[in-house]
């Protein structure tokens, strides 16, 4: 009963079509709404922190740095408390995209791989999730910067 490659491919396609019909769909509307609310809440908190720094006398264009610092700390802190992954299950992209999510991705990996030692475990694998973001973030920043320089001039 050896199947030819062709038959096998057809069986696979047929099964995947069948499976698609029976697969539960993620609740897109609900997920989008929750992502909006959670992401919005995190952003509002960030705005609150920024406003605080401005009220303390920092010029608005200088207040961004310390605000990011505070938000990164909060993301890391909530990760260490074991809360951020629960927020993530509800908030989805709403909690993954803000800078708190970036902090979460680094701290979660750092905590996790501590058991494999501080060098090859924690330090090496801390960027397992965040690494691609950093790599492609820096690369695209250079490319865009270069384009701007070529098109609009220095």
């Amino acid at each position: 009963m050896a199947q030819t490659k062709e038959q096998q491919k057809r069986a696979q396609e047929e099964y995947q079509r069948l499976a698609r019909r029976h697969r539960p769909r993620p609740p897109l509307l609900r997920n989008a709404l929750l992502a909006f609310l959670v992401g919005g809440a995190i952003s509002a908190a960030g705005q609150g922190v920024l406003n605080f720094f401005v009220a303390q006398g920092l010029p608005p264009d200088k207040a961004g740095g310390p605000t990011a610092g505070v938000m990164v700390f909060l993301g890391a802190f909530l990760t260490a408390l074991g809360v951020y992954d629960k927020i993530g299950q509800v908030g989805g992209a709403g909690s993954a995209i803000p800078i708190t999510g970036f902090a979460n991705s680094i701290v979660a990996a750092a905590i996790e791989f501590k058991t494999e030692g501080f060098v090859m475990g924690m330090a090496a694998r801390m960027y397992q999730i965040a690494g691609p973001v950093i790599t492609y973030g820096v690369t695209s920043a250079i490319v865009v910067g270069l384009l701007r320089f070529l098109i609009a001039g220095g």
């Binding site: 993620p26 260490a80 993530g88 299950q89 908030g91 909690s95 996790e112």
Partner: peptide, 17 residues
Amino acid sequence: ERQYRFPTELGVQRPPT
């Protein structure tokens, strides 16, 4: 989770499947 997916404290959303 560690071996197959992500660190346990990572805030990822799991699909219904």
